[in-house]
Design a protein around this nucleic acid. Structure first.
Lengths: 107, 107
DNA sequence: ACTATATACAACCAAATGGTTGCATGTCAA
DNA sequence: TTGACATGCAACCATTTGGTTGTATATAGT
């Protein structure tokens, strides 16, 4: 598999979002996690790898089990990214910005 | 090309995030937009299609030009999604939740 | 020691993704 | 009407993605 995954990429897949939801506040083994999905355990493992490499989950090995849990911090990056666009929810500000930038020298 | 794109999918690609940034508060033609990228105009058009089908940009045709601008509203969906995980930034709450759910019957 | 269970990993596959080039079409301007 | 410009669109291509199966290895329990 590949090297490094992005937070944006990691959350793009619906299955991976379900995984994050499932792991919120819980610590679950791969088998337990897989039991919530119809796809194979291997497929789930791959998704977990993507999430892990994006820093969104962390794992520790206990005996023969590998326990995963959510790590929400990297989502702050997304939060920051969003903040910029929140100003434009309803684009009143955007229109104003445009007016200021392009029309302020008229009349 | 395919049918419908998701907001999560749409913002997964760095090029498309650059496009959104470029179109914030501005209305630009495909050619003008393309001039900001090294890839072909066709490639840019495809990215714009993805964004459009996710509702993140809107276009109107003026003469021979097609003008695109940002439509931030669909990002609210992402904002809502994020809110759930914000509680877990630092996982104090998560730990507490775990304690309450699993250990409250002890002693 | 034997068997169950939990995971790891390689190999393979179809479809989606992100890009290209070439050509057709519509529109503006002289 | 003749270019030049702006876009549309089909065909093609390599790589990535999301999934599979099969086999190997490590650990737990009896």
């Amino acid at each position: 598999m590949a090297e490094k995954y992005d937070v944006f990429q990691a959350i793009a897949d619906p299955t991976r979002r379900r995984l994050l939801e499932l792991l919120a506040g819980k610590e679950l083994s791969i088998s337990t996690i897989s039991s919530h999905f119809t796809m194979s355990r291997t497929a789930v493992t791959k998704h977990l790898y993507v999430l892990e490499s994006a820093g969104l989950v962390v794992a520790r090995k206990i005996g023969r089990e590998k326990l995963y849990c959510l790590e929400a911090k990297p989502l702050q990056k997304l939060r920051t990214w969003l903040t910029f666009y929140e100003q434009l929810w309803d684009n009143k500000l955007a229109i104003l910005k445009n007016v200021v930038e392009n029309n302020h020298s008229e009349e």
